[in-house]
Simulated assay, not measured.
Amino acid sequence: MTTQFFKGLHMKKAFKHIVSMSALLGCSLGLLATSASAVDLLTSVKQKKEMNIGTEAQFAPFEFIKDGKIVGYSADLLALIMADLPGVQANREDVPFQAILPGLSAKKFDFVVTSVTVTKDRDAKFAFTLPIAEATVALLRRTQDGNFTSPDQLSGKVVGSQAGSAQLKVAREFDKKLRAEGKAGLKDIREYVSFDEAYADLAAGRLDAVAQSLSNLGPLVKSRPDTFAVVQPAIGPKTFYAWVGRKDSDSAPLVKFFSDGIARANTSGKMSELQKKWFGFTMPLPVDRLPAPEM
């Protein structure tokens, strides 16, 4: 009886040990699986050999469609940086600007390669790269409107800009400034899906001015001097365009990859070459940091 009792006790202890070891092994395997699946976005992109990129290809000379392909300053800069991700396909999806940042938040895109003006509100919600260009806002007018030579003459005029853009925000702020100075302010501010629509309305006389960045306006005026001219000085604070990722630890390595690539393009002189090619002039940009947005 005593012998059987000790044998039973030994078997129970052995069973408990096996159960404990199985549980420990299960935990270890679970941790390994979790560790293996918890890769960051850059690593995931390398493994999948592809990356989904959101862009608005109606923003010449940064990005626009030619012969069925997205071309422009940003396209060339992207190709230069993507050389450091050999074998990875960049799938660019052309969507209206108003859908760009919401699409990034919803993880429809891994990253945004389009000209996004850095603002305080956006900077609080998203992770920006180093600047790719200057985005300071000025006014475009018809060349024939030779008496319209200063932004202070905007009172009573109709101004257009892109819906959801920083340029639209600058136009509204300038309207407030005029009114604060005791002037009549703008007659109307009209919103457009794309800047091309606003340019068409300006040329047709349905607008008096378009609020847009100087870097966009320079090439436009150069190509159509009989139609458009720039009103000086600028109406907004010095601002910058940058590319955008999500503001989380998963996306941080991918944002850093692009930011480092932009820095190398800047210091090597490649960025200046691309600016000369697409804008006809160069824009000195900070290479060590993204300046804090002023608006």
Rank of each mutant, 00 (worst) to 15 (best):
K46N: 04
L220D: 11
K48F: 02
P61E: 10
F279C: 11
S272W: 11
V221K: 05
F128C: 10
E134D: 14
F148R: 00
G261P: 03
D175A: 12
G164R: 02
F62V: 03
D250Y: 10
V71P: 00
P102E: 04
A90T: 10
T55Y: 09
A124R: 14
T129P: 07
D152N: 05
T43K: 10
E63L: 14
S28G: 15
Q58K: 15
A292L: 05
G164A: 05
L77H: 05
S194G: 07
K238I: 05
V39N: 05
A263Q: 01
S155M: 10
F240A: 06
F228Y: 12
G245F: 09
S22K: 03
L101F: 13
L214A: 12
V45D: 02
D208N: 08
D288V: 07
T129K: 02
D76F: 02
Q98I: 15
V159Q: 01
R206S: 13
G205A: 12
M51V: 13
D40G: 15
A163E: 04
V231W: 02
S213Q: 08
K183T: 07
D288A: 14
E197S: 14
E197P: 07
D208I: 06
R190P: 03
A75W: 06
A180P: 09
R179M: 04
Q212W: 04
A135E: 05
E197K: 06
P61Q: 10
E191S: 13
R190D: 00
P96T: 09
F62H: 13
L202Q: 03
Q212Y: 12
T149N: 08
L104E: 07
V137K: 02
L32P: 00
E93F: 15
G280V: 08
S268W: 06
F64P: 01
E273D: 15
A138C: 15
K107S: 14
V170M: 01
L220T: 09
I81G: 04
T129F: 03
M11A: 13
S259W: 08
Q153V: 07
E294D: 07
S150N: 14
T143C: 00
M295W: 07
I53D: 02
Y73H: 12
T143R: 13
F257R: 01
A204V: 06
R190N: 01
D188V: 03
P291C: 00
M21P: 00
Q212N: 11
L178Q: 14
F59E: 00
K120T: 15
A198W: 07
F97L: 11
